[in-house]
Computed example of a mutant assay.
Amino acid sequence: MRASLVGTTVTLAAGALLTAAVTTATAGGPAGRPAHPAHAGTTRTVLVDCLWHRTVRPDDFILACGDGNSRLTGLHWSRWTPDGAVAVGVNMVNDCKPYCAAGSFRAYPVTVRLDDAKPWKKQPGVQHYTRMSLTYQQDRPEGFQQVMTYPLWD
Rank of each mutant, 00 (worst) to 15 (best):
P119Y: 00
C65V: 00
F144V: 00
V48R: 08
M92K: 14
G84L: 06
L5F: 06
L17A: 13
L18M: 05
T73W: 06
F144R: 03
H39E: 13
V46L: 11
R2K: 10
P151H: 03
V46N: 05
H128S: 09
Q138A: 11
L152D: 07
T149E: 01
Q146E: 12
D95I: 05
A3G: 13
R57M: 11
V22D: 01
P98L: 00
W80K: 10
T26E: 05
R71M: 09
T23L: 15
V112Q: 14
S70A: 13
K97C: 06
D115P: 13
T149N: 04
Q123T: 15
W52K: 09
H128K: 09
W80R: 12
V88I: 12
G125K: 10
S4K: 15
C50E: 01
A102W: 02
R131K: 10
T45W: 05
V88S: 14
L134F: 03
G84A: 05
G74M: 04
L152M: 14
C100A: 01
A40R: 13
N69T: 10
P58E: 00
I62C: 01
T26P: 12
G41C: 03
F61M: 05
S133M: 07
L75Y: 06
C65F: 00
H36D: 07
T9V: 15
W120Q: 11
T8S: 14
Q146P: 14
